Amino acid sequence: MTSLMKAAVYRQYGPADVVTIQNWPKPVPGPNDVLIRMRACTVSSADWRIRSCSMPCGFGVAGRLAFGITAPRQPILGSELAGDVVEIGAAVRNVAVGDAVVAFSGAKLGAHAEYRCMRADAVIVRKPPALSYETATALAFGGTTALDFFRRGALRAGERILINGASGAVGSAMVQLAAQAGAEVTAVCSGANAEAMQQLGAAHVVDYTRVDFAGAGNRYDVIADTVGNSPYSRVRQVLTSHGRLLLVLATLPEMLRAPWVNITSRHRLVAGPAAERVDDLRTLVDMAVDGRFTPLIDSCFTFDKIAAAHARVDSGRKRGSVVVTDIC
């Protein structure tokens, strides 16, 4: 008889209420797998895009091919998780039953459930006792994205960086990590989030409802666009001579344009999905323990209210991460 677990499942693309709690087969770990009993997870902007099929311009067909043409291929969303190891495969040596862990399943999703089975060599790190499950689960999505784009964009101490969409999960991670790297950070967000961005390390804040940063006369060595409304054509005049544009969220035409810009100008466009590295997650865990990085948490919902958590993300008003706890 197959054991069952509770999972947040969506069978069709659509708004938040397509997600419902259902019984689902509990995963069985293989020889190289780890079974994690979930304590906390998040609902991210990536979950919203996949669930609603709200893809950047040009990625509609690709999104359907990746996630399911007529219905979701993976009906359980969620990529960030924290929990306890309850079972391991015979070949697993890097974690043990009883270990508290934080993990990132990335595009494989599946974290919105009572249990998640992952390969032991996936992005899994032991969770120190000093970190709560709620804090730990919000580390990966924004933090690893920020680290990867800063690595590819060669962000250096002393440079001026502008972060467009600074109050989101990725943007708020970028503000903190750029400040930690010694950069001078300008955060673009609504005025209501200005104080929070300054507390995270932003030296300057631009209220996008009042000022167009691209026309304000300042120049930047690096611009990170997490919103998708700052193509190269808009920001080229405010990049320094060797400036870099980090297209965290980009349309297909903008991504296709990047190689040409990189060849024909001194500017550099960095685009494409962020790498999922266990070393990056370990770095974030260490920084969180030391107090050098704290994921910004917008709100917490219990698992039985996960549809409401999705609705909060859908609103476009969240600040940082939406966390889900009390998972069945």
Rank of each mutant, 00 (worst) to 15 (best):
M1A: 14
T2M: 12
I21D: 06
Q22R: 13
N23S: 14
P27H: 05
V28Q: 15
V28R: 14
P29Y: 10
G30H: 09
T42F: 02
S44W: 01
S45W: 07
I50E: 06
S52R: 14
S52F: 12
M55A: 13
C57S: 14
G58P: 06
G60Q: 05
G60N: 12
R64K: 13
G68W: 11
A91D: 10
R93C: 02
N94T: 10
G98I: 01
V102N: 05
A111R: 06
R116L: 15
C117L: 13
A120E: 12
D121H: 06
D121W: 14
P129G: 13
L131F: 02
T135P: 01
T145L: 10
L147G: 02
F149A: 02
G153F: 05
A154K: 12
G158T: 12
E159N: 08
E159A: 05
I163W: 00
A166D: 12
S167E: 01
G168M: 05
G168W: 01
A169N: 08
A169Q: 02
A173D: 07
A173E: 08
V175N: 03
A179C: 11
A181P: 09
T186Y: 15
A187D: 08
G201C: 04
A202K: 10
V206S: 09
T209E: 13
R210D: 13
A214V: 01
A214F: 05
A214P: 03
A216D: 15
A216N: 15
R219P: 06
Y220K: 14
I223S: 09
D225P: 04
D225G: 02
N229M: 11
N229H: 15
S230E: 04
P231E: 07
R236S: 13
V238N: 04
R244I: 01
L249K: 11
T251M: 13
M255G: 11
T264R: 12
H267Y: 13
R268T: 04
G272H: 09
A275L: 15
R277P: 02
V278C: 13
V278T: 15
R282D: 11
T283D: 13
L284N: 05
L284W: 03
R292F: 08
T294M: 05
L296V: 03
I297Y: 03
D298Y: 00
S299N: 03
K305F: 01
A308S: 14
S321T: 00
V322G: 00
I327H: 00
